[in-house]
Design a protein around this nucleic acid. Structure first.
Lengths: 150, 150
DNA sequence: TATTGTTATACTCTATAACTATA
DNA sequence: TATAGTTATAGAGTATAACAATA
């Protein structure tokens, strides 16, 4: 820091302080996750799509976009990039051909199989300092926070 | 959800669950903040810069980029947009003219004066369900989490 | 006519690297 | 030559809206 920059002290409310800490914790972990994803050529939204497809088999694009809170047009672009890389496949629903159902390819499953353990390690490293019941407590508090916002 | 999508049940570790909750809580609040910023034409990084300048007077751009963990080239672009909108001002350091010192303009201060209370309301709404000592507890846990990652 | 998905546009952010000006 | 800042480029995400295909 250069000499002439002047830090000022201001008081901040409990809520603002809590937010600053929440943000810092999130960003710190999120950066680690992105570092783990990048060598595999994956962005965060792309990983979210893949991880969702691992749990839900063959959703229509509209379902997918709603589940992940993404605009349908933008999801379309994300799916294009994933499909170009051969991680994902679109197949029209045989009954109602307006629907595209989205599936992981074998390659997509393989990529997930290598990426997910790396991310688990990041998370174990982050939360490992907490004991099991502390983790549960934190989780409950964050769940309350999440629900409180809606 | 369309009929043919198939949810699958998998077990997830405590750490992953804690992360999911952390992420959901963060994203929920973050979206609210962005909604509050958008009518003022501010993006999140732009607000971060302005908020930092409210506390630190006249930092050099390099200091600023390091404080906010932004690349100096990208910070330059963000400052250009803020300067175009008249919220921020660059003045070369009279002693060493390699440095640009960055200042809030009067307009920038005015915008902050209207935006910050709105964001405070978002945060009070989010954390208001917690009592003071609960907020402090959450804050301490998140602080530990943040430090543990580094 | 309503719904699903695609395409188009404009803007911002990020990563990376070459370039300019000052010291 | 080192440092601070700028510019350039390419890729990705987001918001918004018009468009095509199917029902």
């Amino acid at each position: 820091m250069t000499a002439a920059s002047v830090p000022a002290q201001t008081t901040r409310s409990r809520a603002v302080l809590a937010w600053v800490h929440l943000m810092r914790a999130f960003v710190a972990i999120d950066r680690r996750i992105e570092q783990a994803l990048r060598p595999h050529g994956l962005t965060h939204p792309q990983f979210e799509v893949l991880a969702h497809l691992r749990r839900v088999h063959g959703p229509a694009q509209l379902d997918l976009s709603q589940s992940l809170l993404l605009d349908k047009g933008n999801l379309c672009g994300i799916l294009n990039r994933l499909a170009e890389d051969g991680l994902v496949e679109r197949r029209p629903d045989p009954v109602d051909r307006r629907y595209n159902r989205v599936y992981l390819t074998t390659r997509g499953r393989e990529v997930l199989a290598t990426v997910i353990p790396e991310i688990d390690m990041v998370l174990e490293g982050a939360f490992g300092a907490f004991g099991p019941e502390e983790q549960d407590g934190l989780r409950r508090a964050l769940g309350r926070l999440d629900r409180g916002v809606e």
